[in-house]
């Protein structure tokens, strides 16, 4: 492996870089444009749909950090998404019901302030990812897939059987939490806020990917032995990436809870973990904008196919099978060219 290959960023280099950047810019503008045009036409439902795409793209971006760059197939990212969602739900629940969350060591009454909720969600997501990651990263390959899936299920069943916060029925958030200076109940303002978070997250990941840490992370995917040979422990790099990834996905979960004003164990279900993986493969694994492309395509298909048949998942399954078997590289690979890394 030459030095140039190690420093290769997922967008590719030279002439292709421009093409990938054009596709990325088109995706970002497409999301913003879709949301704003829908708002101008008074189609509130479509604005909400675009918000959903942005939020799922944030969750996918969290997964992309470990999967696309670090090569870890985590099949349990719904855990962090759901924990983020429950952070938002539980904090708002206590604040809205005026029941203090805890009185020791200090009185805490919950909150309806998004920034506080986001930080809490990210800390909880990071802690869960640190714990699960520390155990799961002892293994590789298929073991890793099955173990992350199993830990995700553990949290799912815990949420179902713990009655304090709604159990199987879920927990409603009566009023969407607030953000200083914005009216989050206005769909387009909430849409703008989620887009800002999405682009901040993508910017952070781009920055990470180019940093020394990001290069070590990509090297951990390509060749662990070589990474060790240059004096970096792959386990540490991968665990840090896993923790950041958990925090980002939890942030998306908090936003998703506020979008639906409802949290339920379905946010923790393994189907959601699978869907996050599907976003990345549809978008093009390892590409910075893959989660946005994939989530956008998925939600569009769900909306279009769902209108044609109740059994749209049957046709979606066939399509997904076709993409996996015959069209590797996803949407961005198709539009921007360039080979898959890894």
């Amino acid at each position: 492996m030459s030095a140039a290959e190690v420093t290769a960023v997922p967008e590719g280099r030279g002439g292709r870089m421009n093409r990938a950047q054009i596709v990325n810019a088109a995706l970002a503008l497409g999301l913003l444009g879709f949301g704003l045009v829908a708002w101008a036409m008074g189609e509130t439902f479509l604005v909400t749909l675009a918000t959903k795409v942005a939020i799922l793209a944030i969750a996918g971006a969290g997964l992309n950090l470990v999967l696309g760059f670090g090569g870890l197939v985590s099949f349990g990212h719904a855990a962090y998404f759901g924990l983020g969602g429950y952070s938002a739900g539980i904090l708002a629940h206590h604040a809205l019901n005026y029941t203090p969350m805890f009185e020791w060591p200090f009185l805490f009454e919950g909150t309806t302030s998004m920034p506080v909720i986001w930080i809490t969600a990210m800390v909880i997501g990071a802690l869960a990812a640190a714990l699960i990651g520390a155990l799961s990263l002892r293994t590789t390959g298929v073991y890793f897939i099955m173990i992350t899936l199993a830990f995700g299920q553990m949290i799912f069943y815990f949420a179902i059987s713990w009655p304090a916060y709604g159990g199987e029925d879920g927990l409603p958030i009566y009023v969407r939490n607030g953000f200083p200076g914005l009216n989050t109940l206005d769909p387009v303002q909430f849409f703008g806020l989620t887009c800002a978070v999405l682009f901040a997250v993508l910017g952070l990941i781009a920055m990470l990917a180019h940093s020394r840490f990001g290069l070590a992370l990509q090297a951990a995917r390509q060749n662990r032995q070589r990474l060790m040979a240059v004096g970096i422990r792959p386990g540490g790099v991968l665990l840090v990436a896993f923790v950041i990834s958990g925090a980002i996905t939890a942030l998306a979960g908090a936003l998703y809870a506020d979008l639906n004003r409802f949290v339920s164990p379905s946010m923790l279900s393994w189907h959601l973990s699978g869907e996050l993986l599907v976003f990345l493969i549809l978008g093009g694994t390892g590409r910075l904008f893959a989660p946005l492309a994939g989530a956008g395509l998925y939600i569009t298909l769900e909306h279009l196919l769902g209108g044609v048949s109740d059994h749209w998942q049957f046709f979606f399954g066939l399509l997904l099978l076709g993409v996996v078997l015959f069209a590797r590289g996803g949407v961005i690979g198709f539009l921007a060219g360039g080979k898959r890394h890894g």
Partner: peptide
């Protein structure tokens, strides 16, 4: 790789 196997068999579950 395992990722493709996971996704293809996930698609089979949906079908």
């Amino acid at each position: 790789d395992h990722l493709d196997q996971v996704l293809a068999t996930f698609a089979l579950i949906l079908i």
